[in-house]
Amino acid sequence: MKLLPLSENTVLILFEQEINHSVFQQVTHCTKKIEADLAEYLVDIVPSYASIQILFNITKISLEEFNNLLNQVIKDTTVDVAEDRSTKIIDIPVYYGLEVALDIKHIAASANISVDEVISIHSSVTYDVYAIGFAPGFAYLGNVDKRIAMPRKETPRKKIRQGSLGIADQQTAIYPSDSPGGWQIVGRTPLSMIDYTEEKLTQFEVGDQVKFHSISQSEYIAMGGIL
């Protein structure tokens, strides 16, 4: 773990540069500690796979003092990572029907398995919310089982519908709004990933865990899903 000042008011904590659960556990643990202990100096915090970027309030504290505080907080956390198992698991309903799962046949064919197997593999894993970025509420979830991991499409689609679930290599994500995109689409959720009018803006935060469960077309529509 390394503390790196990026600018006058931004500091980056770099962990081992690997995408895995144990590195990520340190990220989420440190993030919680920093949010709790250094709240008065925090302006923005961006936890991600293997780093935490912090924008701090330069009018309240010097970079050196802030680094010192940060170092203490980080040092404390390495001790009790093992206890950090109170993670929330959020259940997301997904309709995997072919009319919305635009690339699921292609994934099944490449993996030499049936569409049903793709669904069961995708919905059997508990995913970490590694990061939120790219767009408001766009959560990067991992890791996707290697059997159904697929690279992004060579030519991105011009429009992917809101709620679409995509796979890119060993990551999976839900498009929070209609947008162009190159991920391989395997299903769609009726839930909204971001709502500016709600107090709880997003379905999940970095560090939460997510599980998908397969719903039928009628359940999808009953929950407000659009085909």
């Binding site: 990026l6 600018s7 980056l12 540069q17 961006v46 991600s48 293997a50």
Partner: peptide, 11 residues
């Protein structure tokens, strides 16, 4: 490339 991380103003 790097593992995606935060982007500061002016990065």
């Amino acid at each position: 490339g790097i593992i995606s991380q935060g982007l500061a103003l002016g990065a």
